[in-house]
Computed example of a mutant assay.
Amino acid sequence: MKTKFAVLTTLLLITFVCGCTQSDVSNIEKLTPQINDHLTEGDKYFNQSARALNDFKMNSTIEKCDRASSEYNSARSLTSEALSYAQSSKENVYIQYLQLVISEIDAKLNGTSELRTAAQLFNDGENETANEKVSNANQIMLDAKNFETQRQTLVKQNPDKFK
């Protein structure tokens, strides 16, 4: 009798653990399209802000940077939520992937901030400092691209986790 009870308890525990893990992964999968949409929109606004800066349209640059930051912040919030699900499921590949996404988003937020500051400095006639900010923004966005490349490598190394 005790053996049957122990087997039944073990089976229920395994079912519960597997169900929780699956549920966490499902939640991550539900958030992924939203995260990607916000990243895509943020990138679109950032690129528009860079073009506006090149056209010496500083107010438009600032406006587009603000929109890019808003999109990136939304993506970051959703990614943090997804990361908590990954940590709960103890799925190390997802944890690593989402940490890279957060690093990429943080870089994009910093790069966007640098570009916005550059536009403000150009408006104030502080061209030398503004050019330094533009250079910083470019370098930070290259860092973001590096995080994206690391994510893509992780996906290629784990095709069973990313469908």
Rank of each mutant, 00 (worst) to 15 (best):
D160W: 11
A82T: 00
L115W: 01
S69T: 12
Y97I: 04
D106L: 04
S23Q: 15
E126Y: 10
N158H: 09
A86F: 03
G42Q: 02
A6M: 12
I105R: 00
A50V: 14
A52I: 05
K90V: 13
S69C: 10
E132N: 14
F46L: 08
Q99L: 13
K145M: 07
D37W: 08
T153F: 03
D37T: 14
D143Q: 07
L98K: 02
K133A: 04
E71M: 12
A144C: 03
G111P: 00
L142V: 07
E63M: 12
L13C: 15
K133F: 04
F162G: 00
V17F: 12
G42R: 00
Q87P: 02
K4S: 14
R116A: 08
T15S: 12
L109E: 05
T32S: 12
T153P: 00
V7I: 15
N110G: 08
N127G: 09
T10M: 15
C18V: 15
L8V: 13
V93Y: 02
L115D: 02
V155E: 02
Q99G: 05
N136F: 06
T61W: 01
R51C: 11
N59P: 03
Y94V: 02
V7W: 06
D43M: 09
F46D: 06
Y45W: 10
S60C: 10
E126T: 06
D160Y: 11
F122C: 05
K108W: 03
L154S: 01
K161D: 05
R51G: 10
S69N: 13
D66I: 10
G19H: 08
Q87I: 07
R151L: 04
C65M: 13
G42I: 01
S135W: 08
S89L: 07
D66F: 07
E91F: 08
K163N: 13
A68M: 03
L78G: 02
D160F: 09
L39G: 01
V25Q: 12
T9C: 13
T112K: 04
F147D: 09
K163D: 13
T21G: 10
I105H: 00
I62C: 02
D106A: 09
S23E: 09
L31A: 06
A137I: 04
E41V: 12
A119P: 01
D43I: 07
L98C: 03
A130W: 01
T129G: 08
N47T: 07
L98I: 03
I35E: 00
A119H: 01
N131I: 06
T3V: 11
Y97A: 00
R76C: 07
A107C: 09
R151M: 10
A118K: 00
A107M: 09
A75G: 05
P33D: 04
V7R: 14
Y72M: 06
F122Q: 03
M58S: 14
V101Q: 15
S23Y: 15
P159E: 05
P159A: 02
Q48T: 07
A118Q: 01
M141L: 14
L154R: 01
A50Q: 12
